[in-house]
Write a protein that binds this DNA or RNA. Structure first.
Lengths: 344, 344
DNA sequence: CTGAAAGCGCTTACAG
DNA sequence: CTGAAAGCGCTTACAG
């Protein structure tokens, strides 16, 4: 069942069928048009996109390469990408690399074979230099989300400034022992946040202390472990910046399990503003990263590239501090917990 | 740059190139084979999947239709689907319908045009009868996740029994005022859980009370609202079953904001066991739905269907109660909160 | 306004 | 073991 069948039933040529069904502005007599539409509907005709793509060299398909959809940051991005893709009748192929070189390579090959018109790549940690060049060489456009050191258009957020803003908030509240649980330091996002943290301490005249900095990996578990490390000692932090909300929530769990009160004993600030952030108790103060909008912007940019329209080379989106319940002034005297006060 | 170029460079025919590159078991002399492999590599040849698919009538692409990847239940499922897809070198096209008929229709058309080999459909609420028949008529296999009233293979979990199990746990703890915040009742999953809740009450000899049942929609917000409704009155519930973890976490937030202690004043049980469930405090008791495994099973089944292998018609996966901190015995005397006790 | 025909890049039955 | 050629289902330049 193909276009020739429609042509036969309508009593016209395949050329005419094609012109009608693609709403070409090629002139076709109204009654001819109607016969075609009628026949197509009667036969339940769905044009073969493979044949079309083969000929036209465009598939209206794009790839979305992310580390892991299970990380609550990526569903937002993906949704943004997909919504604008759908709006322009593009279809998106979904690739979870786990930041694994082998998996990435396989996906790149799969996308190349499927002749995608473009890809959006989010999340670093893998070296995409070769991959992006491959896509580029094969007429697939590339848009990056986040800061990569690659010469492709990208959508970014200023993680450095965002982290600084969060730390300043803590400083403004009176904190001077401010810890940090980082993301995986092979990621630029994580490194930028760490740099911002350090810069903010410096400009507040606070000496850095590695005892209250722990490396995490953007999971709740690493936040829990890091939280225990940063909190369970004398001279502990009175404020913690976490490199994302999952870490922050893990750290809050650690605080609770140690018997520390948030924010009375310890303030916690996250990053991202996932939905859950406003529903944990105390509600999480966090730096909101506009993930959905980043996805939207990336896909919009990709479509412009594909359709050879003008477009900016890099779009910077703002991150904003959302103050909720988990941040407050430090406890009155150092080392004293709300519990010890209560017990007095 | 195509197979003819590779053939020319290797000094063989396209037939031979095809046979070598597809690892056909057709006999090819080793040195010929080598020349082909060499040429393909040198030219950076990536076979055109569109041409291949057009001819073979299979694309090694499947569609994944879900309501919304932003709902933390679906990333797990999607990951399961995608992991086994990748393992078999299938590619997955990603469709978020928002349970919207128009969007669904568009995706179905897009998938049909792309000649996907099959689709897995998760999440009801939309009528997929027409869609599934369309796929079926066009040689695309269909696997459903969850209970639909459609004659297609499916992967399910027994929500009825799972809800009963959760309520029984509360009854065993001594609760007799047990509330329920439902999911959207147009979904069979939500209705099955509600039925299970009612059945468990009945077999425990507890009269149902609509005052402590609220309709939610699987979001934190609806859990918060529902929680306020069920908790903020005399004769309030001492235990709440929530139709998913997001609702449960919303309900816990409501309890906290009212000044109620979980589990001292009120026990809360969720459904799903999302990662966050073990990191909120108190950690959430919940019925673990094996979402990742459901995705895996569905995709595995789909591949068997496509490759015409034997397969079960329906796979039932077990749901297990995970007892953590949010459930405990009811407060000693009715209407008395831990706060009022403390104040005494 | 309409159609005949070439061609997109592959695979495979057939012939040698 | 190897190759010539047909054909998958479309679109479009060309001719009328």
């Amino acid at each position: 069942m193909g276009i020739v069948d429609v042509a036969r039933v309508a009593g016209v040529s395949t050329a005419t069928v094609s012109r009608v069904l693609n709403e070409s502005d090629y002139p076709v007599r109204p009654d001819t048009r109607e016969k075609v539409v009628e026949a197509a509907k009667r036969l339940g005709f769905h044009p073969n996109g493979l044949a079309r793509g083969l000929l036209l060299k465009r598939t209206e398909t794009v790839g979305l390469i992310i580390p892991d959809i299970t990380n609550p940051y990526y569903p937002q991005i993906s949704r943004g990408v997909e919504d604008v893709a759908a709006k322009h009748s593009y279809t998106v192929v979904f690739c979870n690399t786990d930041r694994d070189a082998l998996k990435s390579e396989r996906y790149v090959e799969a996308l190349l074979r499927r002749r995608v018109d473009g890809v959006v790549i989010a999340g670093g940690g893998t070296d995409f230099e070769q991959a992006t060049n491959l896509f580029s060489d094969h007429n697939a456009e590339v848009v990056l989300i986040g800061r990569h050191r690659l010469p492709f258009p990208s959508v970014q957020v200023d993680n450095f400034r965002a982290a600084r803003k969060a730390v300043s908030h803590l400083v403004g509240l009176g904190h001077s022992r401010i810890g940090f649980i980082t993301g995986p330091l092979n990621l630029t996002s994580a490194r930028d946040r760490l740099r911002g943290y350090k810069a903010a301490l410096k400009s507040a005249g606070i000496a850095p202390d590695n005892e209250i900095v722990a490396e995490g990996d953007y999971t709740e578990k690493s936040g829990y472990t890091g939280g225990l490390r940063v909190l369970d000692r004398r001279g502990r932090a009175t404020g913690i910046l976490a490199a994302n909300d999952r870490i922050a929530i893990g750290a809050m769990a650690a605080a609770a399990d140690i018997g520390l009160n948030v924010p009375a004993d310890i303030s916690v600030i996250g990053f991202d503003d996932i939905t859950m952030a406003s529903f944990v108790r105390p509600a999480l103060t966090t730096v909101a990263i506009p993930a959905y909008e980043m996805g939207e912007a990336a896909m919009a940019m990709l479509i412009k590239l594909i359709q050879q329209e003008a477009h900016p080379r890099v779009i910077k989106l703002p991150a904003e501090l959302v103050v909720r319940e988990s941040s407050g002034p430090p406890p009155a005297s150092k080392g004293e917990t709300s519990k010890s006060r209560r017990l007095r």
